[in-house]
Amino acid sequence: MIERRPSLNALVTPLVDALVADADWLRLEVRRLENGAQLIDAGISALGGLEAGRRISEICLGGLSRVTLSGSGPVPGWPSNVEVSAADPVLACLGSQYAGWSLAHGEGKGAFHALGSGPGRALAGKEPLFAELRYRDRSERACLILEVDKEPPLPLVDKIANECGVDPSALTLILTPTSSLTGTVQIVSRVLEVALHKTHELGFDLDRIQDGMGSAPLPPPSPDFVTAMGRTNDAILFGGQVHLFLGGRDDAIEELAERLPSSASRDYGRPFAEVFKAYDYDFFQVDPLLFSPARILLTAVESGRTFAAGRIDLDLLAASFGIAP
């Protein structure tokens, strides 16, 4: 039986409308496609920026989370940080923010590929994960975030609207290139999500996750895609911190703490761009257990004990971010 919880798409509707209303000063470009779908360019032709990224991150989290930019953090001399907290972290992160909807159109060099994230995923329900979450959204409007540097083809936009069960005119697509400031913020804001995703991959019962929050340093963007992707990953892998509050036995939570940090992966120890290159740029060859925050704290709410594992690696962060000595 599908649990009825608040509509993620309904929660983000006022956030999307406010984003459009503030598009000029947020340096975004908004237009309607031929089929009526609303397209928000947050870094392709538009400049975008940190505040645009922060607000888009909250939309990506289904309106259930608060994303803040802070001027202090655990990395000495690096004042730019992203912090994430969620009212319902499992639904916000896995039910909305996780980039789990594979989208493609065409073949060969002109093919378009993207992973969709955001609340529109919960309308389409294309992933088995939604059965585990016992959640399926219903809404007259839909929003999806695509981490791409080009506009999706119109037939694919039609397909997205159809699978979300909405008219194309009720669909909003937000485009956030990895190399943009906007994209950098929205990727690093996934620090809590990657911890929950790995927790799920390790077989821990999602129903036992009661709450959580996370933070990570905001890296400098790069015009080179591989460098930009590497830095946003490294911000989480080497500088991310997450604190989860869990139900269950202490021994199970302690075991999870030991396996959860990025340092538990066989591919840990080099900037992600180097790891990616070593696998001939085949993302699927990278150890999936690498994608997790650097430092983890797990509090067992039934006993009050907290288990910590992992560490922030300042040397690897400096190497990745290109910080001059």
Rank of each mutant, 00 (worst) to 15 (best):
L69W: 00
S189M: 10
Q210K: 08
G108Y: 04
S80G: 00
S262Q: 09
H200N: 06
E193S: 05
S263R: 12
K150G: 02
A318W: 02
G62K: 13
G230T: 05
A195N: 10
R311I: 00
D88Q: 14
A161M: 04
A87D: 15
S65G: 13
R259Y: 04
P14K: 10
Y98G: 03
T227I: 08
L50Y: 11
D251T: 07
V20D: 01
P74G: 11
V226C: 00
A104N: 09
F284P: 04
G116T: 02
R266H: 12
I2S: 05
V12L: 08
S45C: 00
T306K: 03
L146N: 06
I40F: 01
E58V: 14
E274Q: 15
G247T: 03
F291A: 05
F204P: 04
G43F: 06
D17M: 06
G248R: 03
L33Q: 13
T306D: 02
L317E: 03
G203R: 04
D88K: 10
S65H: 11
S57M: 07
Y279Q: 15
E51Q: 09
L103R: 08
G110S: 03
D313H: 13
A104I: 13
L91A: 11
D158S: 13
N81D: 00
L103S: 14
I296S: 03
W78C: 02
R55K: 12
L218P: 04
G63W: 13
L290S: 12
P325F: 04
A170K: 05
A294T: 04
P14C: 09
K109M: 05
E147V: 10
D149C: 06
S265W: 12
A87L: 13
S303V: 01
V157E: 02
A309G: 13
D282G: 03
E127K: 11
D224N: 13
G36M: 08
L39E: 00
R55S: 04
S292C: 05
L26G: 08
Y268W: 15
P79W: 01
G36R: 11
I56V: 14
A104T: 15
P293T: 03
P76T: 00
Y279H: 14
L94C: 11
I296K: 01
Y135I: 03
I160H: 03
G73V: 03
L39V: 10
S7P: 10
G43M: 09
E3W: 08
A161Q: 01
P219Y: 08
R31Y: 15
V67L: 07
V67H: 12
A294D: 04
P155Q: 04
G230C: 10
